[in-house]
Design a protein around this nucleic acid. Structure first.
Length: 254
DNA sequence: GGCCAGGCCCCAG
DNA sequence: CTGGGGCATGGC
């Protein structure tokens, strides 16, 4: 059986997905309606003959090649890569990513996870004790702004309504290049430059995306003055995720 | 208890 | 095009 070198802790808890939890040494999530759980030891067995999971975990992309390129650029990237090993970019359900990163704006990760769970319990399907699927756009179709506000979505409620009205754009965006897809996604209210870039990475694997949140603005200011995402080409998205996670975990700039 | 959070919209200059 | 206020809510 092939052994994979993916760092599961870094990959699942670096802020690209809000679906995962870990109890003891068991990772767990509900992915596209299906409960998935494993440990470090059982991961290889679980994904071995599962095309969906192999794609979800991005197991066939050439990480060693990309990391050799990025690691040779400078000390900050080199340290982040040495610290995390292979942090993979997940290939997630695009509707889930769209909703998740609408929720993310002016918010903190703990509360994003709670809001994600609130949507699952209200609009998703119950598939076990305390276990719910994340709702599809079809399942959320009847939601109203008042209802979403009562669930604690706050000022993001009307953005979620707009996302529901434009959910069909995701199918089109999936077949476009980076720029074309970005322009399409930004027609949704509440999807600006940064949220669009997150969707383009975490749902559509566009490596030229380079989202600048509050943490990455600090990273660029202190570590990469006078540089921008093009410095990390053609792996800007991957570099961004390493630096974002590294800066947060190390408590840099605080 | 005030500041901040994986921002965006809107409006003024 | 750029800058700054407002926005819901809760974590810390």
């Amino acid at each position: 059986m092939p052994q994979f070198t993916i760092n599961l802790d870094a990959t699942l808890f670096c802020g690209q997905s809000f679906a995962w939890s870990k109890t003891g040494d068991t990772f767990h999530a509900v992915l596209d309606g299906r409960s998935v759980s494993f440990t470090e030891e059982t991961f290889s067995l679980i994904v071995q003959d599962d095309a969906y999971l192999r794609n979800y975990f991005d197991l066939d992309w050439d990480y060693p090649k990309a990391l050799a390129c990025l690691g040779g650029k400078d000390a900050h990237l080199n340290e982040a890569i040495n610290s995390f090993g292979e942090l993979h970019i997940l290939n997630q359900n695009s509707w889930e990513v769209l909703v998740s990163f609408i929720l993310s704006q002016n918010n903190n990760i703990k509360r994003i996870e709670k809001m994600y769970q609130a949507l699952s319990e209200r609009y998703g399907r119950k598939i076990g004790q305390e276990l719910y699927t994340f709702p599809t756009a079809q399942e959320m179709a009847g939601a109203t702004e008042v209802e979403l506000r009562s669930l604690g979505m706050g000022f993001r409620a009307p953005y979620l309504i707009s996302a529901l009205e434009h959910a069909h754009l995701l199918d089109i965006a999936g077949n476009l290049d980076y720029q074309g897809a970005k322009e399409l996604l930004m027609r949704i209210r509440g999807v600006g430059n940064k949220v669009a870039d997150c969707i383009l990475i975490f749902a559509f694997h566009h490596m030229e995306a380079f989202p600048l949140d509050t943490w990455m603005l600090k990273v660029m200011k202190h570590w990469y003055p006078h540089k921008d995402g093009s410095y990390f080409a053609p792996y800007a998205a991957l570099a961004q995720q390493y630096l974002f996670h590294y800066a947060r975990k190390e408590g840099a700039f605080t």
